[in-house]
Design a protein around this nucleic acid. Structure first.
Lengths: 238, 238
DNA sequence: AAGTTGATTCTTGGTCCAACAAATGAGTCG
DNA sequence: CGACTCATTTGTTGGACCAAGAATCAACTT
């Protein structure tokens, strides 16, 4: 019997994907789901998967590579592949992989989204904030003006906003912010150079934190909106 | 001029990843960025990348596999690899790859996020909605009750909400909704069986659309919040 | 003669195989 | 108890072949 077994044999119940790698990927995935494998469990060895799926080792490895890229498995030499769930981190890597320039449209959309979140969650933020939080937030704001470079200042700026979002207590929203971090940073570093240096951003932050401290929802929302839109105006100058 | 630069040379500024595949991946990425390659451009052939990076073909292929998993390149036989930007679709696939069960916490977070978006964007939605939109939305709602299965009904339910979110006119938010689609669907299909059948969801949708039609922001926000939280209560019954 | 069509060849990704290197867990011996 | 050896497993390499598509060219038709 020749070695070249055809992929599309009898065991091809699903996904006649016309690609051996995709087929193996689907089968491994089915094995995870139907086998009820949970995070922390181990997958069979590569060679075992080879003979189980009638595939070559390279094919199995490429499928494993995709699982790794998806953040579903973590594989170490000798110890094998264990199931994990780092898809959020993968999504983060995804957006850090910059190939295209940020368009004006993307800029508007991201800022609009932030406005929605950061002004809309005023109730939750007010309910959760503690005096210690305020001290920390003001300290971050001071670190921003002490920053040596625009890049560093942007990171502190975003850190302050992210810290505020953390107070909402919603992990999904925080995850989204984490995913968007690279894009937001690029947006900040593009348009805010002068504003940060001139201290406008610092003073706006201070006003927002003051409103937060005295639980003035209307002021908080108004100042936050103005603050976010100010970055918007500097973008279109160029 | 010899092209064969050694991998571990001076240009290894980042990611001395101790992995040949990661090294090749970083180099290809650097080639894209520094070469100013845009979407639509073509990458060199695999064999050319082999000798340029002094790597084996399998190594290059595994690196290419990751680029494909990232949605950065699209590779077709004979024609080679072309640069694309389908990272949003990849992120979508990422979250469709379910390995873990939805926790109560995730459920709360997602619903909280939706509440923030769908009640917070009332101004934009009111400004954008047209009579045709309303007709379409009501039609989707009717299709939901005509649905044969819970799965189909859930899809129509989410379709209505997604259509509403589309009216915001913010592509980033829409992207996030698309990414979350699989998770939201699983949430819906878990808790809403009885509610959909009994027509509660339909009537709540109708009330929301009525408020939308007469531009009653307060009613819209209140009804939407109640509607979203209703699904929350059915979740904890089990 | 020009255009079309068909076959042929060549390129290129897709898959497989065999082998070696490196890492590491496990067993063994001092 | 510790150091050492060994076997297993992933990481990497090089080579081989196949299939499909692009390119080229010859033959045929109009």
């Amino acid at each position: 019997m020749p070695i070249t077994r055809n992929v599309s044999d009898e065991d091809e119940t699903e996904s006649e994907s016309s690609s051996a790698v995709d087929a193996v990927l689907a089968q491994i995935r089915a094995m995870i789901v139907e086998g009820g494998l949970k995070v922390g469990d181990k997958l069979p060895t590569e060679r075992e998967l080879c003979e189980r799926f009638n595939s070559s080792r390279n094919t199995v490895r490429e499928a494993m590579r995709m699982l790794k890229a998806f953040g579903v498995v973590e594989v170490r030499p000798k110890v094998g592949a264990t199931i994990v769930d780092q898809r959020m981190n993968r999504a983060f890597d995804l957006f850090a992989f910059n190939v295209t320039e940020i368009s004006r449209q993307t800029f508007d959309d991201i800022q609009g989204f932030r406005e929605l979140i950061e002004t809309g969650s005023v109730t939750q933020i007010f309910a959760a904030v503690t005096p210690e939080n305020l001290i920390e937030l003001r300290e971050i704001n001071r670190e921003m003006v002490r920053a040596k470079s625009v890049i560093e200042a942007s990171e502190q700026d975003l850190r302050l906003h992210t810290r505020l979002v953390t107070l909402i207590g919603n992990k999904s929203i925080l995850d989204i912010y984490r995913i968007m971090t690279p894009v937001i940073l690029r947006i900040m570093q593009r348009g805010k150079t002068r504003r940060i240096i001139e201290g406008e951003t610092y003073r706006e932050h201070q006003a927002i934190l003051d409103a937060l401290e005295r639980r003035d929802a209307l002021a908080f929302q108004y100042l936050m909106r103005t603050h976010l839109r100010a970055g918007l105006s500097t973008f279109e100058e160029e």
